[in-house]
C-alpha cells in the first residue's frame, strides 16, 4: 500500500555561497534555520520521504548557488529532490535537472505561460513536473469562481504570483484542474493564509483541490505539529504533507511525526 509522504521544505536564500534556509510567517518575517544541504541530509536520515528546495530569492545571478546546493545535497541524500523558485524557462528546468534534481516545481512562470507545464512533462515526464500554487482565501462567493465552503462561509481562493507579491484574480482550484490537464504530475498546494502560522493546514482548500484532480496533492502551509498532519491526512485526500518550521526549529523530528501518524492508523514509511 502506498504510504502518505512527509516532505520537509527548505526555503533557500541564496545570497551566501552555500545558501541558507530561512522561514517566514505568511510569506514575511524571515528567520534563519540552517545550511540547505546539511538540513536536507538530517531530514533524509530522520526518514523524510522527499525534500523540496524553494529558491525564495529567485534571482538569476544566484542560480549557480542553487546548483551547488542541489549537487551537495544529491551526494548524500538518496530520496527525491524537488527544486523550484524562479524557474522561468525550459533552459532553467534543464539545468536544475542536470544539477541532480528529480522534479521541478513551477509557479508564477506556469501561471503566465501554462505551456511550460506540457513542455516539462514531454521532456521529463509528468512525474517530474510539480505545479506549485500559493492560494489566498477570498471571502464571498467569488463571481464564477469555484466556491468552497469554509468556516467563514463561502470563499474562493486566489493564486498569487511572485511569492505573494501580486494577484491577478486567478481561481486557484480551477488552476489546479487546468494544470493537471496540461500534464502536471503533482500539485503543491500552499495556503498563504496559514503559511508559517502553526495553525494547521487549510482543510477546505486542500479538500476542494483533492476532490477535483486525479494527481497527487501535497498539502502545505500552516503545519504546527503532528496532529495537523494527521488531520489533513484523515480529512482530505492529500497524498503528502509538507512542513518547514516544525522541523527546522526542532519542535518535531521527521521520525517522531511518522511514529505519531502510524500509531493513529495513517500508513507511512517508517
Amino acid at each position: 500500500m502506498l504510504a502518505r509522504r512527509i516532505i520537509p521544505c527548505l526555503d533557500c536564500d541564496l545570497a551566501v555561497p552555500l545558501g541558507r534556509v530561512v522561514k517566514g510567517i505568511e510569506f514575511k518575517q524571515i528567520r534563519y534555520a540552517g545550511v540547505p544541504w546539511e538540513l536536507a541530509t538530517r531530514y533524509y536520515e530522520e526518514g523524510a520521504d522527499e525534500i523540496v528546495f524553494l529558491d525564495i530569492t529567485a534571482s538569476s545571478d544566484r542560480r549557480e548557488t542553487m546548483f551547488n546546493v542541489i549537487r551537495a545535497t544529491a551526494k548524500n541524500v538518496f530520496i527525491p529532490l524537488a527544486v523550484g523558485g524562479g524557474i522561468k524557462s525550459l533552459d532553467d528546468v534543464r539545468s536544475v535537472f542536470k544539477a541532480g534534481a528529480d522534479k521541478v516545481t513551477v509557479n508564477t512562470t506556469a501561471l503566465k505561460r501554462p505551456g511550460i507545464i506540457s513542455e516539462i512533462a514531454e521532456e521529463y515526464g509528468s512525474q517530474a513536473c510539480v505545479v506549485a500554487i500559493d492560494a489566498k482565501r477570498r471571502d464571498g462567493p467569488g463571481d464564477g469562481r469555484i466556491s468552497v465552503p469554509t468556516p467563514k462561509g463561502e470563499s474562493w481562493f486566489e493564486c498569487s504570483f511572485y511569492g505573494g507579491r501580486e494577484f491577478a484574480g486567478v481561481d486557484a482550484v480551477a488552476w489546479a484542474m487546468e494544470a493537471e490537464e496540461l500534464g502536471a504530475g503533482e500539485i503543491l498546494l500552499t495556503s498563504m493564509d496559514r503559511d508559517g502560522t502553526y495553525d494547521g493546514f487549510d482543510l477546505p482548500l486542500t479538500g476542494a483541490v483533492c476532490e477535483r484532480v486525479r494527481i497527487p496533492v501535497i498539502a502545505s502551509g500552516g503545519c504546527g505539529n503532528a496532529e495537523h498532519i494527521f488531520e489533513v491526512f484523515s480529512k482530505t485526500g492529500a497524498s503528502a504533507a509538507l512542513a518547514a518550521s516544525i522541523f527546522h526549529y526542532g519542535e518535531w523530528g521527521v521520525h517522531e511525526v511518522k511514529r505519531y501518524l502510524s500509531d493513529r492508523g495513517i500508513h507511512v514509511r517508517l
Binding site: 502506498l2 509522504r5 504530475g185 494527481i215 497527487p216 497524498s239
Partner: peptide
C-alpha cells in the same frame, strides 16, 4: 487509483 503512482510502497 491516482496516476502516476508517486511515492513509497512496500
Amino acid at each position: 487509483v491516482l496516476v502516476p503512482q508517486m511515492g513509497w510502497n512496500t
